[in-house]
Every structure is written in structure tokens, then in C-alpha cells.
Design a protein around this nucleic acid. Structure first.
Lengths: 261, 261
DNA sequence: CGTGCAATTGAGTTGAGTCAAGGCTAGTGG
DNA sequence: CCACTAGCCTTGACTCAACTCAATTGCACG
């Protein structure tokens, strides 16, 4: 049920088997489902629950008065949001789903019930926050210093790695239900420029990103372009395989659309 | 001694008077002083203490392999860094001082000693993290979507407001020991462009930022340019006074250097 | 009185944005 | 089963905000 989350917690060793069981027991039955492109929260909302993403993708987005939009983080399976809730603070940003989303409310009492202190859920929350703050810092760097190709490459590396950590990648590909517009809002570029850049990237043969499917043909090269170092994600970096032994998908760009169906 | 920090905690009501006393008693004597432009931590460092900035300014900075640098946050008096330490995680960024810095190590036992749970230091840490994550998100927005003037204006508004919250502003001015290069690294622009932009801003009469002194002549206008909304800083926004009744400092740009001495 | 870093200014370049027009695809409703 | 629509993707031509390179000034510190 809440596989992604528990999987990640166990992996980093923060949650005991008992804790995992307790957690599954207590929050398992409370799943909530949302459709794609639904708004979950808007600025000013206050609520005391933290949500756990079980399946699907959502994002947090800040909007300027004149309509410029910036996605400030993606919420993938296994992620918690938003810690501000833990403190009863109002949101300053929008949270909306990008795909269908399965979510569980984590009530405060769960946190304490599973054994507060440094070995229970309390620590899980701390780690979640630390992770998100590391990601957020990396985004500042990404948007502040890197060029268009580098930004996009970095974002793709990050998302792929995070999905990999919760078992949602298959060899060198994964489902990533974002539009180019979403990518643009995440990396601070215009959709037009994202499109041109993505095209040239697939032409150069290292990634394909079409209709919600990301295929990484040459991880080494992509990571090199991005200057990607997975350590900040607190995940042991299991490199995805590149394309199967010299199938040489990189030679032609034209059949990308086949691969990514 | 640790006035700035306690002041802020009391202000937001997270720390009881007793807690404050206990805190002052336990960590007061452990002050550490660093010079300007000293590196405190570098990527890979691990240490278990959280530091509390008492006076001075430091920053966290990420560096790309080719030397591009991005400051990802400023550490002002009253700030805690770095929560990753709380979890024993390695740093991925540099931390260095910008001015002389007075710092206190907060050891984990202090946290629990002052009464763990939701009313003691534990909550203070949570709030510190929530604040920093809000700031970080705002930076992504800043660097991702805003133009040069907007970025700089926003940064100045943020820093002024944060300093104000710990009582380090005087009317419409404050000490801000940053070079234009630092500003450039924080907002993701080149120093040259920051210079040009700052010049035009002071020419237009709303701010002066010279030799470590920031003077805000027209807060309304600056905040308007920046699209600044202080709520994310969790501080009740006490607007700084603009220039004293129609002294009209804005008419001339030439005497800025006097004001800011 | 150098020496070195920060600030300033000018001239020329460019990466990314803007505007505008088609093309593709999935979903809708007749 | 086939128009019709609405998003998204794609492409071209042009513009501009910010960058680069380069030189000069100014200040502070030894």
C-alpha cells in the first residue's frame, strides 16, 4: 500500500520493522485519490496534516502577480508534504497534482504513536525535511548558475534518481507525467526554449522525453552535462543501465517516438 | 549574549521564559569567533553540532566544477545552521563567513535538556527549518522568474526584514557586509550586471547600498518592484520608515556615499 | 606608496525570450 | 465513425536582457 514510502524509510534504516507495521496499520486505510491537474492547496491554506504521496506526481508552485510561475518542488511517491503543516503554518504556494495522485494523510498523533524521539517517525520527518531542503538548495544552484541544457539535464537526472529510489524505474526508463511546460516552470525557462533544448538533447542521443516517458540512453553523458552528483539525494547511486549493449539507439533520432510509447 | 536568537524565539512565542534562561545558561559560555571570509565547512564535512549565529553574517555556497558559484542562503544573527548536522549528514556545500562571526554550538543534549517535545527547543529547530525552507523556495522563485532589478530588490527586502526582526536595523538602514560580488552570487547574475542594476536603483532613489551599508529610501517602491510579501518570513511586517519627512534624499544620487558611511 | 580587491564604465556578443504560425494527438459529441 | 476542439509540441524570424571582455578608478591595508 504505502510501499514507496516504507521502502525508502527502511532503505535508509530510519524506520524499524515494527514502526513500519504500525505505520501501515494506522494510516493504510485512509488513502485519498485526486485527479490530474487538481489543486490541493492554495496560498493561505492552513491545515494540520502532513501528506504522504503514495502514487502519482504533484508539485508546489509559486505564482507572481503578473502570472509568472515557478515550480519549486516535485512531490514523488514516498515524499511527505508539507512540513509547514506540522507547525500549523499557512501555505504560501500552490500545491497541485500533475497526474492522478494517491495520498495518505499523516496525522500528528501517528507521529507520536509510532514512537517519538530519534528512532520513530519523528526522525523520518526530519530526514524528509533535510532531503527537501537539500533538493531545494540544488534547485537554487540549478536555476541560478546552469545553462538551459544543464538545467534540464540536471532535473531529469534528479527525477530519475528519485524515482529509482522508490522502485519506479525500469532499466533506463520511467514514467514521468510532465509536460514541457511543467519542465519549463521547474527550471525557469520558457516552454519554447525547453522544447528546442529537449529536441537537441534527443538529437544528440542521450535522452528521450516524450509523452510522459523518460528514457535515458546514456546516463554517463547526461550526468556529465548536468554536473549531477546524486549524493545530495541521500540515495546510494545505483547507476541506471544505459541502452542495452550497443543497440545504438543513439544513432537515429527518428524512432524515439517508438521507444517512448 | 545570544540576544538575537532568543529575541526571535520569544517573539514567535516558541520558547518559554524558563527555556530561554536554560538556553542562555547552557550555551552562553561557548561562544566561538571567526574572522571575515573564513571557511567553516566544506563539502563532505560531517559534524553533529548545530550552530547558532549570534552576530555577523555567513553564507552557504555551492560551487560547480568549473567555478561557477551560487550562494544558497545567508545566515544572519539568530539563525541556526545546519540542520543536516542534527542528523549527522555530510554537507554538500561550503559555509563561510562574510564578516566577523560570533557563533554558539548547540549540542544535541541542549535540545533535549531544554524540554523536548513541542514546547522546547525541538520546536525551535522545526521552526528554523520551516523558515529556511520557505526562504529557499522563495529564492528558487527569485532566481527562476524575476528580472535583475526584481531579484536584487527582493534580496534586499528579505535581508532588511530579517535583520529588522532581530533588531539590527536603524530606521531605514542596516549594516549588510556584502560585496556586490556576493549579491551577484546570491541572485544568479554577474557582478557587472549587479553593479549596473544597483547604480540605476540608487539613481532612481529607492535604495543605496554602499560599503556594507544598506539604506532604503523608499520601502514601498522597493517592495513593489520586488513583489515582496514578508509573510513567508514569519515575521509581523513592521514597515521600516521611509526617509524622514520629505528630506528628499532621492533627488540626488551623488551624496549617497555620504549617507552610507 | 604600492598592491589587491571592489566598484565602475564602455563596447560588442549571445543565450534565451517573444511573437506568431502550424502540426499532432486525444478526447468529445454529433 | 468522423468532424471538432483544446492542449501540447514544433519551428522560424526577430529582439533584448544579461553576459563577456577589457580597461579604469577608487579605496583600504600593510
Amino acid at each position: 500500500m504505502i510501499a514507496a514510502f516504507i521502502r525508502r524509510c527502511r532503505q535508509t534504516g530510519e524506520l524499524s520493522a515494527a514502526g513500519a507495521a504500525a505505520l501501515e496499520h494506522s494510516i493504510g486505510p485512509r488513502m485519498q485519490i485526486f485527479g490530474a491537474r487538481e489543486e490541493l492547496f492554495r496560498p493561505g491554506d492552513v491545515q494540520k496534516t502532513i501528506y504522504l504521496v503514495n502514487a502519482g506526481i504533484a508539485c508546489q508552485c509559486s505564482v507572481l502577480r503578473d502570472g509568472r510561475r515557478q515550480i519549486t518542488s516535485f512531490l514523488l511517491p514516498g515524499d511527505l508534504f508539507d512540513v509547514r503543516a506540522y507547525l500549523g503554518m499557512p501555505f504560501e504556494h500552490h500545491v497541485y497534482t500533475l497526474s492522478m495522485l494517491e495520498t495518505m494523510p499523516l496525522v500528528l498523533s501517528d507521529v507520536t504513536a509510532c514512537g517519538a524521539g530519534t528512532s520513530g517517525l519523528e526522525e523520518v520527518l526530519w530526514r524528509a525535511v533535510a532531503l527537501h531542503s537539500a533538493i531545494s538548495r540544488e534547485w537554487v544552484l540549478n536555476v541560478g548558475q546552469r545553462s538551459a541544457v544543464e538545467r534540464i539535464a540536471h532535473l531529469l537526472c534528479e527525477l530519475f534518481t528519485r524515482l529509482q529510489a522508490v522502485g519506479l524505474t525500469f532499466d533506463n526508463r520511467c514514467l514521468l507525467p510532465l509536460t514541457q511546460i511543467d519542465v519549463a516552470e521547474a527550471v525557469g525557462l520558457t516552454p519554447v526554449h525547453v522544447n528546442r533544448t529537449l529536441m537537441s538533447m534527443t538529437r544528440s542521443g542521450c535522452v528521450t522525453f516524450h509523452r510522459g516517458v523518460l528514457v535515458i540512453h546514456d546516463w554517463e553523458r547526461l550526468a556529465e552535462i548536468a554536473g549531477f552528483d546524486a549524493r545530495y539525494l541521500q540515495i546510494e547511486p545505483t547507476k541506471p543501465l544505459s541502452d542495452s549493449p550497443s543497440q545504438a539507439t543513439r544513432r537515429s533520432a527518428t524512432h524515439c517516438s517508438h521507444e517512448s510509447r
